[in-house]
Design a binder for these strands. Structure first.
Length: 289
DNA sequence: CCTACCACCTGTAAGC
DNA sequence: TGCTTACAGGTGGTAG
């Protein structure tokens, strides 16, 4: 469940079902799921034994379970990762990669990931000031629009400092985090911008409008439990969100634009697709703004 | 230093 | 009914 709203839905579930519990045992069923944990699977499972989960946190699309002793289990869901809370006797999912059992014998935490682009790491937490603890693994990730300390002007500056197409900048998690292919297309539609517009020709005001739109659409999606087209994107209880009903651009090829009625177009973009309205979001002409 | 590209996987749906 | 191809909510390493 890749983008910010879907990951936040998972974080809320982890906070409710896992925070305050102590790990009895960890089990790695597929080594690729912990490939970012350099010391390896044995180190991962040994060190998790007996630790208490203090809280579930998130920045952008990254999640982490804050442990005592300034450590954390950092998780990225990649394209197909799920965090599921399941009874210990429930049958293993086909793509179960990592399991955490707790000393209370209650429901266990399962990391399930079909495509294995996601993974877990056991990492140290670093104090970055303002009583904020951040795993070293994600030091390069910018604040997301739901972060209380998110600053719109800082993010606008970061976007405009890039010499590239606006959607590439929007998707760059070191500039502003949490936005993926769906919400980038939704934000661009709301701001009436074509994805290929060069950043350096966008006004500060337009960039603010774009980032505000991204923030708005992600908040709206969170309110609907996130976007899900199939059972791959679910919360810790296996339930799907229903923001897909509210999408204006993503996946809407051929359907009438909700503003002007023109059929939404699909264009290839970075080995996937971009959806936009040909009338509301005209393609930039060479040397134009 | 900065930007663009592709490999990393598995599964599903569409096309022939 | 196969078989092949396109495509999918992401990111990090690296080539240029």
């Amino acid at each position: 469940m890749p983008e910010l709203p879907e990951v936040e839905v998972v974080r809320v579930g982890l906070q409710a079902h896992v925070a305050g519990r102590t790990v009895r045992e960890a089990e790695v069923l597929h080594p690729r799921a912990i490939r970012r944990h350099v010391p390896g699977a044995d180190d991962f499972t040994q060190r998790l034994k007996g630790v208490r989960v203090e809280a579930a946190r998130r920045r952008g699309k990254y999640l982490w379970l804050e442990l005592s002793d300034k450590e954390a289990v950092v998780a990225h869901l990649g394209m197909s990762g799920q965090m599921l809370v399941q009874p210990e006797d429930a049958p293993d999912e086909k793509h179960l990669r990592v399991r955490l059992r707790f000393d209370d014998g209650g429901p266990e935490l399962r990391f399930v990931d079909q495509r294995t682009f996601g993974g877990l790491v056991l990492d140290d937490l670093t104090d970055i000031g303002e009583r904020v603890l951040l795993p070293g693994t994600i030091a390069h990730i910018a604040r997301d629009p739901m972060d209380p300390a998110f600053d719109l002007d800082t993010a606008v500056k970061a976007l405009r400092s890039r010499r590239t197409e606006i959607k590439r900048a929007l998707l760059d998690q070191t500039l502003v985090s949490g936005i993926g292919n769906i919400y980038a297309d939704e934000a661009l539609w709301r701001a009436k911008l074509h994805w290929a517009r060069p950043t350096e020709k966008l006004t500060v005001a337009k960039c603010r409008e774009l980032l505000s739109a991204a923030s708005d659409v992600m908040n709206a999606a969170l309110g609907q439990g996130g976007t899900s087209f199939d059972a791959l994107y679910v919360n810790v209880n296996g339930q799907s969100g229903y923001f897909d009903r509210s999408l204006d651009a993503y996946g809407q090829e051929g359907l009438p634009c909700h503003r002007c009625g023109s059929p939404i177009r699909r264009e290839p973009f970075m080995n996937r697709s971009s959806f936009s309205c040909p009338r509301c979001q005209p393609r930039p002409r060479a040397n134009s703004r």
